[in-house]
Amino acid sequence: MAWMAWTWPTAAFFAVIALLLVTFTVLAIKFPETPRTGILRIETTRGDRLFITLLGSAFINLAWLGIVGANQPFALLVCLVYAVAVFRYV
């Protein structure tokens, strides 16, 4: 990991994203899905909602870092609430 100066949290972050992609790929193969229309009135699949969640979580973390600057684990809680909302309503 020294070639990119990664820290363990950074490596864990990318490992979780890789695990999510593999999990969602297996789910898509095992349980084919049909797009659904949510509160945004666009058709989304599980993968679309995962992408929206990851993108939104990145912005939540950046905003948290810029506004609060500390206590980043609380931003994770906000991201988890956001993820539940996206998968439930979008």
Results as ranks from 00 to 15, higher is better:
86 V>L: 04
4 M>A: 11
59 F>A: 12
39 I>T: 08
48 D>E: 08
52 I>Q: 03
52 I>L: 15
53 T>Y: 00
65 L>Q: 15
43 E>H: 12
47 G>K: 04
31 F>I: 08
38 G>I: 03
41 R>F: 10
59 F>N: 02
83 A>N: 05
38 G>R: 03
10 T>I: 09
74 F>S: 07
84 V>N: 04
16 V>F: 12
15 A>W: 09
62 L>F: 12
30 K>E: 04
23 T>H: 11
55 L>V: 15
43 E>V: 05
76 L>I: 09
43 E>Q: 14
58 A>Y: 13
33 E>I: 06
74 F>Q: 10
66 G>Q: 12
76 L>K: 01
75 A>C: 10
8 W>Y: 14
39 I>P: 00
6 W>N: 10
37 T>M: 11
47 G>W: 07
79 C>T: 09
4 M>F: 15
64 W>M: 09
27 L>G: 00
26 V>T: 05
28 A>V: 01
48 D>I: 01
25 T>V: 02
66 G>S: 13
5 A>D: 11
31 F>C: 04
64 W>Q: 06
7 T>C: 09
53 T>S: 12
82 Y>M: 13
70 A>F: 12
84 V>H: 08
34 T>K: 13
63 A>P: 02
16 V>N: 03
27 L>I: 05
60 I>S: 02
13 F>C: 09
30 K>R: 14
42 I>F: 14
12 A>Q: 11
10 T>R: 15
47 G>T: 12
39 I>G: 00
10 T>A: 13
57 S>H: 09
55 L>E: 06
59 F>Y: 15
13 F>P: 00
3 W>C: 01
86 V>Q: 00
15 A>V: 08
29 I>D: 06
51 F>W: 12
42 I>H: 12
25 T>L: 10
37 T>C: 06
38 G>L: 08
15 A>Y: 06
10 T>M: 15
87 F>P: 00
29 I>K: 14
63 A>T: 14
13 F>R: 10
6 W>F: 15
83 A>G: 10
84 V>M: 10
83 A>W: 05
62 L>T: 06
41 R>N: 09
83 A>C: 13
20 L>V: 04
